[in-house]
């Protein structure tokens, strides 16, 4: 478990990172927190020619509220997000999602940008990017561009990031007043990759009617699953147990999970219903003041 040979370069600015990527060529990889990349290197699953270390690019380490959005620099550590009072106050779903990521030691190093760019099908942050239609800012040789999840996530571990591009910022629209949230997950052990996970955010009006529901599931496909149909079923309705169950059913019929030694396709499909229901109920209870 020793990595094959690679060249190492460290950048101090985004601009420098982009130019180092260009110099290195198409087989280079960005090293952020390294919590997925380093094990993959040691297993020799990946053999990049160069590692471009962005850990010293401090301009990418921030959490700010801006124009009704929470803007987070790509190099912000997961642990920083977990402990951020601003995040907890404005977008507690992100706090809750963070708590599901691995273990403290992993969160101390892991970064939000790294997690989203790595696009593991069981990762928590991509689910929130999908759920909240977050904007992703990407910097490349020709300047910066902004994209959203439907363009960004391509398939397993694959995004539309081009070889010389760096993901720099994620902007999450803040939930509207009257919103409740939940991130629930099924894993074999604490900190394991989710077999199935569901993020939910529901916004209720004063009369107990659902104004908006957002759902994103992980572990059930190549990247997080969003269900416009299930969300539409909930919109404008009272969220009864029956309706919640129907939304869960809808999602379980939509997803196409793959099985592995821990969870079969059938099991993941069934759990997508169970965890959609659990997430919705928990989110709803939080609108009503529950913990």
């Amino acid at each position: 478990m020793k990595p094959p040979k690679f060249e190492y370069r460290a950048a101090r600015t985004v601009e420098e990172a982009v130019s180092l990527l260009q110099e290195a060529g198409e087989d280079a990889k960005i090293l952020a927190g390294g919590q997925s990349l380093v094990p993959m290197l040691n297993f020799r699953l990946t053999r990049p020619s160069h590692l471009i270390d962005i850990n010293k690019v401090s301009e990418l380490d921030y959490i700010r509220e801006k124009d009704g959005k929470l803007a987070i620099g790509a190099l912000t550590r997961e642990r920083t997000i977990e402990r951020s009072a601003l995040v907890r106050q404005k977008f507690p779903l992100l706090t809750e999602a963070t708590e599901w990521i691995g273990h403290v030691q992993i969160r101390n190093r892991g970064t939000i940008g790294g997690s989203v760019a790595h696009a593991d099908p069981a990762s928590e942050y991509p689910a929130l990017v999908v759920l909240s239609d977050a904007e992703l800012t990407i910097q490349g040789p020709d300047g910066s561009r902004t994209t959203t999840w439907d363009e960004f996530f391509v398939t397993y571990l694959t995004t539309s990031l081009q070889p010389f591009e760096v993901l720099t910022e994620l902007r999450f629209p803040l939930p509207k007043p009257g919103s409740g949230y939940a991130f629930v997950e099924l894993a074999r052990r604490h900190g394991d990759f989710a077999l199935v996970g569901c993020a939910a955010q529901v916004t209720m009006n004063g009369k107990g009617t659902c104004q908006e529901a957002r759902l994103a599931l992980i572990g059930v496909g190549p990247f997080p699953h969003r269900s416009p149909d299930a969300e539409a079923m909930l919109k404008g309705q009272k969220l009864t147990d029956k309706l919640i169950s129907e939304a869960g059913q809808k999602i379980s019929e939509e997803v196409e999970p793959e099985g592995d030694m821990h969870a079969s396709t059938e099991y993941r499909r069934a759990m997508s219903k169970v965890f959609t229901e659990r997430a919705l109920k928990k989110a709803l209870s939080r609108v009503q003041g529950g913990k």
């Binding site: 297993f43 020799r44 699953l45 099908p121 069981a122 398939t155 397993y156 571990l157 990759f193 496909g221 190549p222 793959e258 099985g259 592995d260 030694m261």
Partner: peptide, 17 residues
């Protein structure tokens, strides 16, 4: 070999892909 023994989680999906 290697991929089967540590790539379990995504092997099925990636193969179909």
């Amino acid at each position: 070999g290697l991929v089967a023994s540590i790539g379990q989680r995504m092997l099925g999906g990636v193969t179909k892909l």
